[in-house]
C-alpha cells in the first residue's frame, strides 16, 4: 500500500518536473530535446518488447508502424483539425496516429499465425519497406520530399504523459491472462494452444498494442521535428529500436527503459565523433550478446513496475520457499 503512494507521488513529481523544466528553463534546450527523444525511444522500445521479448517473435519492422503513426498524426493536425486550439487537438491526433498504426499491426499479425522466427522477420522487414515505398509514392503527403507544416506540439510534459501511459498499459497487459498467453507462446506455441489459449487472438492483441504505441511514438516524433520524410522510418530506424531492446533486455519494461536511456545518451555524447558512433553501438551489442545474451535487465523487473498484488504474491512465494518442507510423493 505504502509503495502505491510512493509511486503516485513520484509520478506527480515527475510530471511537475517535466512541466517546470521548460517553463523555468532549468535545462539547456538541447538537453530538453534529448530528453524528449529519450521518451520517444522508451515508448518505441517498450512497445517492441511486447512482441519480441514477451511473446518471443522476431519483428524487425517497428519503424513501419512508427511511420504510419507519424504520417496519420501529422495529416490530422495539419490538414484535418482546425488551426486554432491545435494544442487541444494534439492528444487526439496522437491517438489517431496510434490507431492508424494499430490497424497496420492487425494486418502484420496475420502472417504471424503461420510464420515464425526467420520467416516472420522477413515478413516484417518487407512490411517496413512497403510502408516506406508507399509513402514515397504518395504525392498528397509530399512523396520522397516529405511532409511538413506541423507545429511543435510535442513538449516535455506530453512526452512524459505518453511514456507513463505506455508503460502502464503494457504492464497491465503483461500482468494479465494475455501476458501469460504471450509468455507461453514464446515457450511453446503448440502446447499453449493445447492448454486452451486462442493463440491467434493473443498474437493479434500483442501486435495491435505494440503497433499502437509505435504509432504514438511516431506522432510525437513528427511533432517534435516538425518535418518527416519516408527515409526517417527505414530499416535503420527499426534496427536502432532493436539495439535498444536487446541492450536493455527481453521481457522487461525496466530493461527497455534502461536500454533506451543508455543508447540515447551514448549516441548524443558521441555525436561529435561522427561516423565512429555508428560503429561503437553495434560493437557494444556484439559484446553484450556474447557475454550477457539476455541483455542488461532481461527477464527482470523493477518492483515499482509490477502491480502490487503480483508483487505481494512474489514476495510471499519467495519467503515461503525458504521454509523447508517435507516433500511427500502424491
Amino acid at each position: 500500500m505504502n509503495m502505491r503512494w510512493t509511486i503516485g507521488v513520484g509520478l506527480l513529481a515527475g510530471f511537475g518536473l517535466c512541466w517546470a523544466i521548460p517553463h523555468y528553463e532549468w535545462l539547456d534546450p538541447y538537453v530538453q530535446l534529448v530528453l524528449m527523444y529519450l521518451g520517444i525511444n522508451i515508448i518505441l522500445t517498450a512497445s517492441l518488447n511486447l512482441v519480441n521479448g514477451y511473446m518471443g517473435e522476431f519483428s524487425v519492422g517497428h519503424a513501419g508502424f512508427m511511420a504510419v503513426g507519424a504520417y496519420v498524426a501529422s495529416i490530422l493536425t495539419v490538414l484535418v483539425f482546425p488551426e486554432e486550439g491545435s494544442a487541444y487537438y494534439f492528444p487526439l491526433a496522437i491517438m489517431g496516429g496510434g490507431l492508424g498504426a494499430a490497424a497496420t499491426g492487425l494486418i502484420v499479425s496475420i502472417p504471424s499465425f503461420r510464420a515464425r522466427g526467420d520467416y516472420l522477420a522477413i515478413v516484417t522487414l518487407a512490411f517496413n519497406m512497403i510502408v516506406k515505398s508507399v509513402l514515397e509514392n504518395l504525392e498528397v503527403v509530399g512523396g520522397p520530399r516529405g511532409f511538413m507544416g506541423m507545429e511543435q506540439l510535442t513538449t516535455l510534459p506530453w512526452v512524459y504523459v505518453w511514456v507513463v501511459i505506455t508503460i502502464w498499459i503494457l504492464r497491465n497487459l503483461v500482468y494479465s491472462k494475455y501476458g501469460r498467453g504471450m509468455a507461453a507462446i514464446r515457450e511453446d506455441e503448440i502446447v499453449c494452444d493445447l492448454c486452451g489459449v486462442h493463440t491467434r487472438r493473443v498474437k493479434i492483441s500483442a501486435f495491435l498494442v505494440s503497433a499502437f504505441f509505435a504509432g504514438v511514438a511516431g506522432g510525437l516524433y513528427a511533432h517534435l521535428l516538425q518535418f518527416i520524410n519516408p527515409r526517417m522510418f527505414d530499416i535503420l530506424k527499426s534496427t536502432e529500436v532493436l539495439i535498444m531492446l536487446y541492450l536493455g533486455g527481453m521481457a522487461s519494461l525496466g530493461g527497455s527503459m534502461i536500454g533506451a536511456t543508455i543508447y540515447t545518451v551514448v549516441m548524443e555524447v558521441l555525436r561529435a565523433q561522427g561516423g565512429f558512433r555508428m560503429v561503437l553501438m553495434p560493437l557494444l551489442l556484439i559484446f553484450l550478446m556474447l557475454f550477457r545474451p539476455r541483455g542488461i535487465f532481461g527477464l527482470k523487473e523493477f518492483s515499482w513496475l509490477i502491480p502490487w498484488r503480483d508483487l505481494l504474491l512474489m514476495r510471499q512465494l519467495r519467503t515461503r520457499k525458504e521454509v523447508p518442507r517435507a516433500s511427500a510423493e502424491g
Binding site: K177, R180, G181, A183, A184, C195, G196, V197, L317
Partner: peptide, 11 residues
C-alpha cells in the same frame, strides 16, 4: 504457478 494458471486461460 503460471504454468497452472495458463491452463485456465479460457475459463
Amino acid at each position: 504457478l503460471d504454468n497452472v494458471r495458463l491452463a485456465r486461460y479460457a475459463k
